[in-house]
Computed example of a mutant assay.
Amino acid sequence: MIEAILWDNDGVLVDTEELYFAATREAAALEGVELTAAQFLRVSLTAGLSMLGILLERGVPPERVEELRRERNRIYRERLLAGVRVPDGVPEALAELAPRYRMGVVTSSLREHFDAAHTATGLAGYFEFVLAREDYRDSKPSPEPYLAALERYGLDPRQCVAVEDSSRGLESALAAGLRCIVIPAGLTRGSDFTGAAAVLASAVELSTAVEAIGSA
């Protein structure tokens, strides 16, 4: 029986991953470093590491990298506040699932970025809680974000399902003992989702998938 659904944010609730990559690429370009989408997929969306670490490898001083990180975060926040796209089926899925399950967000985003992204989406009210990057030490693919959510809110992993869009999110959820539904988005399409309870084309199929997992 499923009692709670734990949602990733970027790529699942809001289509923001390409905005984040663009802001990171723009910041890196200030030091003459060109970042590619393939690097972003490998370093950030799969390994869960900072793309700006590439600048350190290129000899950019750590203090300058931190300046560029702040600049990237500023650019990204401005673009989030300008408006984000909500993937097809997400509002309808939330409205259908919220009366039947506890729901929370477990995101690698900074809280200020989560709040900026949802300024106008109308989605935040569906969730009992939001765990952001400041709320745990090790980010996905570590299981720590999901373990922190389970402990803080008294949830049994056997009665929870996670919704993710990336292989690092899937790895994090599985390592925490959760079953995980994956809805690939943009840059993560074509990734390896071995171990997922289901891989869906869109959130339109989500309610049916959760019910199937709960009755299995």
Rank of each mutant, 00 (worst) to 15 (best):
P87I: 01
E67R: 09
K140Y: 08
V105I: 15
V84L: 03
S44Y: 07
P91V: 04
T194I: 05
D10R: 00
R58T: 13
G59Q: 14
L41G: 10
R70S: 14
L206C: 11
E211T: 13
P91H: 03
L52W: 08
R70L: 15
G11K: 03
S142I: 07
E92I: 03
E211Q: 14
F114R: 00
A4P: 03
F193N: 05
R42A: 15
L178V: 13
V65K: 10
A197M: 07
G154S: 10
V204D: 10
S139A: 15
V105M: 13
L55Q: 10
R158P: 07
A27M: 10
Q39I: 08
R69M: 12
I213W: 01
A162P: 06
A198V: 05
T107M: 11
A37W: 10
G125P: 00
I5T: 02
L110R: 06
N9Q: 10
I2M: 09
L94N: 00
H113R: 01
L80H: 01
V33G: 14
T16P: 01
V60I: 15
I54M: 11
R77M: 08
L56N: 08
R25A: 15
R25M: 13
T208F: 04
A173D: 13
E71H: 12
T119A: 15
C180G: 13
R74Q: 14
S44D: 11
Y101H: 11
F21P: 04
T208N: 10
L52V: 11
R179F: 08
L174G: 07
R100S: 15
T46C: 13
G186C: 04
T107K: 02
S191I: 03
A216Y: 01
